[in-house]
Nucleic acid binder design. Structure first.
Length: 426
DNA sequence: AAACTTAACAACCGCCGAGAG
DNA sequence: CCTCTCGGCGGTTGTTAAGTT
């Protein structure tokens, strides 16, 4: 374990990447895929460590990245996801095709945090700031990994905060759980309206290739620099790139972590409406409750939708369909992780039964787990629209202690344990 | 115009887990 | 079972441009 061995090697460049380095890396991965990252710099002729190459590719050079400022709906979604997932940036990024965890993390730290504070919301807990908090002396439960875990902040499990009896209903609905409205007009871009030389470079680098596809809703169009970058069904698209408005991604080519990772807070159908990721029509495999089965083997990317994003929005070595890496087990291993939840049911029930918490805390926990249930119900039912208000409504209606245990992901187990410890320390 | 502050972005660091040998 | 490599993740720092005084 520990640092990558290549990091110890001498004469490795650090710092910002030059256009020449970008071009070398882009050319290499375009032609050969990245394979083993540690071998990439050598093969590409770069004086960088493999980790640096990987990071550069994932965060900047990947052709499926959105460029430009975040739309308001993206920010809202980030806030919602953060309320549920905490600082799990990679999982949040998985729900935002074309965005990287680094990008989202930066946005959160530099922009969203401040906005929330200005609105009187603690960005860590998603609860209203107290007067002391507003003064900057707010002790909040840390989400830092330095606390010994990268787990979700127990108090940042979003809907949990809404349960506080001290909160007004108005505050709960209007402040704590911002409603995702796909119809809301985008606000003006908050980022500096610049076109970095690097983006110009990318445009130049990728210009002239076939198969242009709109990868983002705002900003300039980014072209895939690959002749045949993505395996798509012959049924739906021609292989000559002439008709690239719609792409069908085969299971083997599509990293479904875009749809879900550990705990998908939004349904694929929600993604289809909010992200431009559409489930294929008239495909019984995808119909209604098809989610949750490994039969889902392709997703639909509508390149004509102005709000469409690349369906390969997740990070990681297998995030790109054209990379020579198998993703055949993605659906089994990553997309529907709750398939084993039933096996854990007893364990969770046992855990909850064993805990001797204050009543109010137990209620809170129950409600939190119900929220988890509801979220998963949302996925399973493949409801047509992501509406957090609806989730909250059904969540309050759903107070059956048994049900909550069926689908609570591991993260909640960890949270429960941490919350228990926190109470013990009080 | 210069100095300073702020915002946004890019990249590094260190840790962790998985998997291979 | 142990060690090592590798990929991945999140926190943090560094850099640069824009804005303000």
């Amino acid at each position: 374990m520990g640092r990558h061995s290549c990091c110890y090697k001498q004469k490795l460049r650090k710092g910002l990447w030059s256009p020449e380095e970008d071009e070398k890396l882009m050319n290499h991965i375009t032609k050969h895929g990245h394979g083993c990252w540690s071998s990439v710099p050598k093969l590409a002729g770069l004086q960088r460590c493999g980790k640096s190459c990987r990071l550069r590719w994932i965060n900047y050079l990947r052709p499926d990245l959105k460029r430009g400022a975040f739309a308001q709906d993206e920010e809202d979604l980030i806030i919602e996801l953060h309320a549920v997932l905490g600082n799990r940036w990679s999982q949040i990024a998985a729900q935002l095709p074309g965005r990287t965890d680094n990008e989202i993390k930066n946005l959160w730290n530099s922009c969203i945090k401040k906005k929330l504070r200005q609105k009187g919301i603690d960005p860590n807990t998603h609860k209203p700031l107290t007067e002391a908090d507003r003064g900057g002396a707010a002790p909040t439960i840390s989400t830092e990994r330095t606390s010994g875990s990268s787990d979700v902040n127990p108090s940042s499990t979003g809907p949990l905060g809404n349960l506080s009896p001290l909160l007004s209903e108005t505050a709960q609905s209007s402040m704590l759980m911002p409603v995702y409205d796909k119809n809301r007009a985008e606000t003006p871009n908050l980022a500096r309206p610049k076109l970095p030389p690097k983006e110009l470079f990318l445009e130049q680098l990728t210009a002239g290739h076939e198969s242009p596809s709109t990868c983002h809703s705002s900003g300039q169009t980014l072209y895939f620099p690959f002749q045949q970058p993505l395996g798509y069904n012959s049924e739906s698209g021609s292989s000559d790139g002439a008709n690239m408005n719609s792409l069908w991604f085969n299971q083997s080519d599509f990293n479904c972590s875009t749809i879900s990772t550990v705990m998908p807070p939004v349904s694929p159908s929600a993604l289809s409406t909010s992200m431009g990721l559409n489930l294929p029509p008239d495909n019984p495999r995808h119909g209604g409750t098809g989610i949750g089965s490994t039969a889902v083997d392709s997703f639909y990317w509508d390149g004509t939708n102005p709000s469409s994003s690349s369906s390969t929005g997740s990070r990681g070595s297998n995030s790109m369909g054209f990379e020579p890496q198998s993703t055949s087990t993605i659906l089994e291993n990553s997309v529907f992780p709750w398939t084993d939840i039933g096996q854990e049911k007893d364990t969770r029930a046992h855990l909850v039964a064993e805990l001797k918490w204050p009543d109010s805390f137990a209620e809170t926990t129950t409600a939190m787990q119900n929220q988890s249930q509801t979220l998963y119900d949302d996925v399973i039912k493949a409801e047509s629209q992501f509406n957090i208000e609806g989730i909250c409504a059904s969540w309050f209606q759903n107070q059956q202690p048994q049900q909550q245990l069926q689908v609570a992901p591991d993260m909640y187990d960890k949270d429960l344990q941490r919350m228990q410890l926190s109470f013990e320390n009080i």
